[in-house]
Design a protein around this nucleic acid. Structure first.
Length: 440
RNA sequence: GGAGGGGUGACAGAGCGGCCGAAUGUACCGGUCUUGAAAACCGGCGUGGGGAAACUCACCGUGGGUUCAAAUCCCACCCCCUCCGCCA
């Protein structure tokens, strides 16, 4: 969440910055009013509380001196002050809850560096990359045999079975088979191995408590986008960012250990509630996908480099896989709730002729760490919130789509890039012959 | 799931109704001593909220309750450990 003290200190600045991403000034004015009301109630209640404590001390003294009448008088007085204190405290709690509810709903302040804009159309494309670009070649033209959608390729080769997935869990739950399944495993292994030089590999739980989801900013605002297991107060994680951000919740981290960097392979679950029927064929948009995430807790000074490192690693993977992609600098209006600055990576898929988001590399400033209460002591001084940074490297479902489309050969087989060879037991060719044909 | 034990400051560990935000030890910071270091000795050392300040409030797993007063008593829940049961 944003810093309430900062809002009080410089309301115009915060209001105009949040205005860039569409938060009405009215909301902030109301928040300040609620906050002022809360504080004045708090002062009254605390004065009463102090009085009760003072009287209690006097009761102890009176009893010690054996003055029973005085003891009873003081007890009576304390009791009545205590009663009004209790009533006031309840009002204080209610006021505090109101403040918190509004505060939790306010998105992060965008970085000054984030471009202006209201939505996806205003995002700024920073660069593109494609195989051969470094040698001066133009953007690939792609042959007709590459202009086949991955869902057709998947069916043809028996490596993707959307029908079977739908039968088991409903539409938009993909089921990969044979070489298609192994390809996913290979991608995850490749990525995790690549990041292991600087990022500790974590395998977190797939579900998280409401409190955990709140720390990253996924709750309360985006509850419709998540799968819930109400009986156990659990939510299926939409990204490994959720558990990783909360791993050190409530802790004061050793400054010497920063940045603390972690990578995790998890399944990610998205209800995609608002997106019914839109771009939903094949793997364009699915409810469950595997993703390798990169994450860092760092000092404010380290944040920029930490974000750059994650972006560089995600790009390096795309290049290693030989996939054309572009980098977008998200405008203020398109930023995720918790983010101050985000770079999206979109891969080009020739078969469906689209740019698909496969990574979102974000800097959250102290928005998440304030919710999660993760701090460090700069120079041994008083505790200060850390910054969090994360990004995917990468989300595999769409990469899978890009790979089979980009590397489809004239004969209908798929010839995967050599970097994956070691993870595929040397079999970089996927052809009908390898398909375990139970059905087609 | 059943039985028992336990959750207190960075860590260890006392306190079990009345200046307890909390003894003591370790760690850490400053100082004395020393050529330097160690040891010893002296001093300091939690977090958060409110307040211009004086000052004040909260926090001893979490949430309720009893009481003039709760780390201390009562209730519920969570987590950890040991044993039993079950199990990939």
């Amino acid at each position: 969440m944003i810093d309430l003290a900062q809002l009080r200190r410089e309301p115009e600045l915060v209001t105009s910055a949040l205005g860039r991403r569409g938060v009405p000034a009215q909301v902030l004015h109301e928040l300040l009013a609620l906050d002022a009301a809360h504080r004045s109630l708090l002062q009254e209640a605390e004065a009463l509380r102090a009085r009760v404590k003072e009287l209690s001390r006097q009761v102890a003294d009176a009893r010690k001196s054996g003055d029973l009448t005085l003891t009873e008088t003081l007890q009576g007085e304390s009791r009545s002050v205590g009663e009004s204190e209790r009533a006031l405290s309840q009002a204080v709690d209610e006021a505090a809850a109101q403040v918190r509810a509004v505060l939790l709903d306010i998105p992060n302040i965008p970085s000054d560096a984030a471009p202006d804009g209201a939505g996806p159309e205003d995002n700024v494309e920073l660069r593109q990359w494609w195989p051969g670009m470094d040698q001066g070649q133009p953007f690939p033209s792609f042959a007709d045999h590459q202009r086949v959608a991955h869902w057709d390729i998947g069916t043809e080769l028996g490596i993707l079975d959307m029908e079977a997935g739908a039968k088991l869990a409903g539409s938009m739950f993909p089921l990969f088979r044979g070489a298609g399944s192994r390809l996913l495993r290979a991608l995850s292994s490749l990525a995790l191995d690549q990041h292991s030089d600087a990022y500790e590999e974590i395998r977190p739980p797939t579900f998280a408590l409401t409190e955990t989801m709140t720390s990253t900013g996924h709750l309360p605002k985006n509850s419709d986008d998540m799968y819930a297991i109400e009986r156990d107060d659990l939510w299926a994680i939409p990204t490994a960012e959720v558990p990783l951000t909360s791993m050190h919740r409530g802790e004061i981290l050793n400054e010497a250990l920063l940045p603390i960097r972690m990578t995790a392979l998890t399944a990610c679950f998205r209800r995609e509630a608002g997106a019914a029927g839109r771009d939903t064929r094949g793997l364009l948009r699915v409810h469950e996908f595997d993703k390798v995430e990169l994450f860092a807790y760092c000092t404010p000074e380290q944040a920029e480099a930490a974000q750059a490192d994650i972006l560089a690693r995600a790009e390096a993977l795309l290049r290693a896989l030989g996939l054309a992609y572009r980098v977008l600098d998200l405008c203020a209006g398109d930023l995720g709730t918790s983010s101050a600055r985000t770079f999206d990576l979109e891969v080009y898929t020739p078969g469906v002729d689209r740019w698909l988001e496969v990574s979102s590399v974000s800097w959250f400033r102290d928005y998440q760490s304030r919710r999660a209460n993760v701090r460090y002591r700069p120079g041994g001084g008083s505790p200060t919130l850390v910054h969090t940074v994360n990004g995917s490297a990468l989300a595999w479902a769409r990469i899978w789509a890009a790979l089979v489309e980009t590397y489809r050969q004239a004969d209908g087989s798929v010839e995967l890039p050599a970097v994956l060879g070691g993870y595929l037991g040397g079999r970089t060719t996927i052809s009908r012959a390898y398909a375990p044909t139970s059905k087609r």
